[in-house]
């Protein structure tokens, strides 16, 4: 059996879309915590959910497993971990660009303060459609747990933001 290359595993993971925001991969979303390949070729992937109550967690795990087994990696396991907790700061630059193109404002950076009450972060979010910051938070909840709803007073459109976490 040929030795499985870690980089190859990461490339395969980068083809697995987020079930709720399919324009970004699980790698771009920053939820892959680690990839380990043992000498026997067994691959263990650790992922950390954006929200613990996210109903897509099982789908993501099986999506990851399928991508690896389809590529011939027979012994692949996926584990969910909360250590360290996920933060939206781990969304990659490419991921942020794709979110915006999808009409979903990327989250402001929390710089390690995931639990903090710095709700000023929720203000002056740039509208993904027209680029204005003349926007206001409508509600911190939305179509999925990771989204908040906004209204842009410049282009008069509702839009969503990926919540900073």
């Amino acid at each position: 059996m040929s030795v499985i290359d870690q980089k190859r595993v990461w490339r395969l993971l980068d083809t697995v879309p987020d079930p709720e925001i399919p324009v970004v991969s699980v790698v771009e979303l920053g939820i892959i915590q680690s990839v380990e390949v043992d000498p026997e070729g067994a691959v263990r992937v650790e992922m950390t959910p954006t929200f613990a109550g996210c109903p897509a967690i099982d789908m993501m795990c099986s999506g990851i497993r399928t991508a690896l087994t389809d590529a011939g990696i027979e012994n692949a396991t996926v584990a969910v971990t909360y250590d360290p907790p996920s933060t939206s700061d781990r969304i990659t630059e490419e991921g942020r660009r794709k979110l915006k193109a999808f009409g979903l404002a990327p989250p402001p950076r929390v710089e390690g303060n995931t639990a903090g009450a710095n709700l000023l972060l929720m203000e002056m979010i740039e509208c993904p459609f027209c680029g204005s910051q003349n926007t206001r938070l409508d509600t911190p909840f939305g179509a999925t747990l990771c989204r908040a709803m906004y209204y842009c007073d410049s282009c008069r459109q509702s839009f969503e933001m990926f919540k900073p976490l």
């Binding site: 613990a52 907790p85 911190p140």
Partner: peptide
């Protein structure tokens, strides 16, 4: 108890939106 501490750190970030609401 580390497993509790890990969950608490994670949930604080999520619950801040509940409290804000």
């Amino acid at each position: 108890f580390a497993p509790l501490a890990q969950l608490a750190r994670k949930f604080r970030g999520e619950e801040k939106y509940h409290l804000m609401h």
